[in-house]
Design a protein around this nucleic acid. Structure first.
Lengths: 145, 145
DNA sequence: TTAATAAAAGATGAATAACTCTTTTATTTT
DNA sequence: AAAATAAAAGAGTTATTCATCTTTTATTAA
């Protein structure tokens, strides 16, 4: 079991891929994205439809159509993508699944978990999609299996 | 989606509960545990059967029977419980679900994730079941909703 | 304005995780 | 030895996540 759901993993990978592949005006098709990040095509289509509805990515139909990310989108933190797919419980939920765990009624792992979760939160909030796209341009990191 | 699976959450909570409720020689029944940690009884029974087979907890059948944790078990790190249920991929797997992500072929989040995951690993490896049981004795932390 | 392209939308299917119920086996007490 | 107790084991069911397939709608180019 990963930190993110499978759906969210595909979402993040596809967003990185789109940001990396498209420059102003250009778009990339679902087939190419699915192949590029090694994900099931039709499943990814569903995910991108959703991200499109939420304004995280943009799309146009028809010939030369496909997905791209606008200027505003590139400056968005990665946390926006994660929240859109998995919700924000990942940043706030109790590590032991206790609904009423809180500062005043903490579970045995509350304080320790809080520190770790905050680190994850900061990482995802402080790094934009564009930041990662740059590191991909440098060839340091890869997206495919 | 939490850090741990639901199964693992119940496992951790039940282990804390058993450690807290039992002193040398005494045992606690499945009904009482399920009620104490707010979990489905029969589902928890399955989980504890498994933990028992793996030696994480001990059990005896019949009247005055139930579950307990022996001296060795109390000194076990919490990571043993997590590993028994969710496996160790939680400590090592790629955050983006890439099978071949590694130090030499890192995904865009590899290094950042490594730091966070190591913190989680350290927390679970360095704290024993007994440690948590103590904090429960002090009434600082709670297990039920 | 017709044909081709590519995403959107809808419906369905498979796999896994979560949960329930019933029967069996071991242990203890009477 | 018999009855009661409590976990072990086995066989389901339900819900959720993951994935596929088909049809529709929007856009472009010939």
């Amino acid at each position: 079991m990963g930190v993110f759901s499978k759906t969210c993993e595909y979402a993040i990978r596809s967003v990185f891929f789109i940001a990396h592949r498209t420059t102003s005006g250009s778009r990339v098709g679902i087939k190419e994205i699915a192949n590029g990040i090694d994900s099931p095509e039709h499943f990814l289509a569903k995910i991108l439809q959703d991200l499109s509805r939420r304004g995280i990515v943009q799309s146009v139909k028809g010939p030369n159509g496909g997905f791209y990310i606008d200027e505003i989108g590139l400056k968005r933190p990665l946390s926006d993508v994660v929240e859109a797919v998995d919700g924000k419980s990942i940043f706030t939920g109790c590590g032991l699944g206790l609904a009423y765990c809180s500062e005043t009624n903490p579970c045995p792992l509350h304080h320790e978990f809080k520190a770790i979760r905050n680190q994850l939160k900061n990482l995802l909030e402080q790094t934009t999609i564009a930041d990662f796209s740059e590191s991909l341009n440098l060839g340091i990191t890869k997206l495919r299996k």
